[in-house]
Simulated assay, not measured.
Amino acid sequence: MFLIDVTRVKPLPNRNLDLTFEDGFHGIVEMDRVVKNYTGVFAPLLQDEYFKKVMVNTELGTVVWPNGADLCPDVLYSEATGIPVTTSENL
Rank of each mutant, 00 (worst) to 15 (best):
F42L: 11
V41N: 07
F42V: 05
I28C: 05
E89H: 15
T81A: 05
N67C: 02
L46E: 12
L46N: 11
F25V: 08
N37R: 13
T58S: 13
I83R: 15
F42R: 08
T39V: 07
A69Y: 05
E22G: 10
W65T: 04
P84V: 09
P84N: 04
D23I: 08
V56W: 02
D74A: 13
F25M: 06
K53D: 01
F51I: 13
S78P: 11
P84Q: 08
T81K: 10
D74E: 10
T87S: 15
E49I: 05
T58K: 14
V85L: 13
E89L: 15
Y77T: 13
D32H: 10
G82R: 07
V41R: 12
E79W: 14
K52F: 01
N67G: 08
Q47S: 13
D70C: 06
S78R: 10
H26L: 04
V64I: 06
L76Y: 07
T58P: 02
T81Y: 03
R33E: 13
H26D: 04
T58H: 09
N67I: 03
E59T: 14
E79P: 01
V35D: 05
Q47W: 08
Y77N: 10
Q47R: 14
M31P: 09
M31G: 06
G40N: 06
N67T: 03
L76S: 09
I28M: 05
P84M: 00
V34P: 09
F25N: 02
T87E: 15
V29S: 04
F42H: 07
P66S: 04
S88Y: 15
V34C: 09
K52H: 04
I28K: 09
N67E: 06
V85M: 15
D74G: 12
D70A: 02
V63S: 00
T81E: 09
P73N: 14
G68I: 03
S88T: 14
P73G: 04
G68N: 04
K36C: 00
I83N: 13
T87L: 15
V29Q: 00
N37H: 12
D32W: 09
T86E: 15
Y77G: 12
G61I: 06
K53W: 00
K53P: 00
A80V: 07
C72I: 06
K53A: 01
P44N: 06
I83V: 15
G68C: 02
L71C: 02
T86C: 11
N57Y: 07
N67D: 08
